[in-house]
Design a binder for these strands. Sequence first.
DNA 1: GGATTAACTGGGCAATGTGTTCAGTGGTAC
DNA 2: GTACCACTGAACACATTGCCCAGTTAATCC
Lengths: 159, 159
Amino acid sequence: MAIDHLDGRIIVLLAEEPRIGVLEMSRRLGVARGTVQARLDRLQSNGVIRGFGPQVDPAALGYPVTAFATLQIRQGQGPDVRAHLATVPEVLELLTTTGTGDMLCRLVARSNADLQRVIDRVVGFDGIVRASTAIVMENPVPLRIIPLVEQAARDREET
Amino acid sequence: MAIDHLDGRIIVLLAEEPRIGVLEMSRRLGVARGTVQARLDRLQSNGVIRGFGPQVDPAALGYPVTAFATLQIRQGQGPDVRAHLATVPEVLELLTTTGTGDMLCRLVARSNADLQRVIDRVVGFDGIVRASTAIVMENPVPLRIIPLVEQAARDREET
DNA sequence: GGATTAACTGGGCAATGTGTTCAGTGGTAC
DNA sequence: GTACCACTGAACACATTGCCCAGTTAATCC
């Protein structure tokens, strides 16, 4: 579960050049191929690396508008609402949270006008009491993990 | 920019079995290898597929707590705040939004107690007026893109 | 109609990487 | 000191890649 410096370097390398092979990695890292292979297997079975799925850009697919909707759910309707939202393709992510809202929902749409359609579809469901939406304007820090990986590797080394 | 059915199937295949090769894909899809290769190249230079970086699970790295912080920024301090937050490894994502808050910030921490440290570090910066935090409890719909890809491919076909 | 362009097919080639196995080595825990 | 574990370096058959080509199909333009 804790990763060491070599694990960290493997992950960083993979993030920078995803199409790199195990052999090339071993050359860059100065270790034997079997070592890299074993580390990779371990990282994957650990669940640290979940996979290598393609990172698709919704904007390039024709969905340049992103928004977050905070939903308040009627008592006991949680499961139904989740099932409902899971059927909406424009719902990219759904989280339950503490605080004022009960759920936080990441949406995309083809345009600001289209966002209305998406929101209508999202909230057009009985268990949802109230929804408030915030449109994303900029994304100064796109979803990232490398700094955290480096931090985790550093923590491990300093032990 | 618009993707057709074959593009969609390629992306779905890649998402399901990321380690699959071009040759195996061409077999599964019943098309020539060169076709798959050309489509993949196009999808990548289009920006539809951004890359194949490893998907790292923060929880498995020792950061099982996720939270969203809504930040209010002092006028004109936006750029400084962004630069500040970019230096915090536990900040996985930062977005500027419309609505009550000015920024939305995705955080992780080693524990609920550790979250306090992270938040202190995040808001311990002059340009931030107010912060409110919501801790994520469950993640009923983890970040996904496949349904949207299928929708986009369907839209294209129906033209 | 005829020509042009773009996309796909199916094939072949050398080069490279993969999965796997093995024996040997060093460090560490008990 | 023994047992265990991770790493090394090497080997092997095999599959895949990157690249090239000629021929087909389909759509578009003149």
